[in-house]
């Protein structure tokens, strides 16, 4: 849904999203990386299981919640990428994840 401008080269970081290796740049947030993926959603809503993607990018909507290095319900728009980070999309309530 989003793409990086061609001159946006920074130090490369590798993380995994649901087991898929993804290259990204130092200094960006996990939510920004999610929005560049074919499947840009971060979590399924708790009631109707509808996909939700980062919406506000400033920490006020909580639709960017995902499981980061095993911790559920992390706001990925406030989380900077780190090499080796493991991201899992969050399916429903965190207890069920």
């Amino acid at each position: 849904m989003f793409r990086k401008l061609p001159d946006s080269t920074m130090k490369a970081v590798t993380l995994s999203i649901d087991g898929v290796r993804v290259e990204c740049a130092q200094g960006e947030t996990v939510a920004a990386v999610l929005l560049r993926q074919q499947e840009c959603w971060a979590r399924l809503s708790t009631v109707s299981q509808a996909p939700r993607a980062p919406y506000c990018m400033m920490g006020v909507c909580f639709d960017c919640l995902a499981i980061v290095d095993g911790v559920a319900s992390v706001q990925t728009c406030l989380t900077a990428v780190r090499d080796g980070m493991i991201i899992e999309r969050q399916r429903g309530r965190p207890e069920a994840a």
Binding site: M1, F2, R3, K4, L5, D7, S8, A25, G27, E28, T29, A32, L35, R36, P54, Y55, C56, M57, M58
Partner: peptide, 15 residues
């Protein structure tokens, strides 16, 4: 605002 944050912090625009 989200799109502008993506531009400023990730150099990222809608494709």
């Amino acid at each position: 605002g989200a799109a502008q944050i993506l531009l400023k912090s990730s150099g990222q625009i809608p494709d």
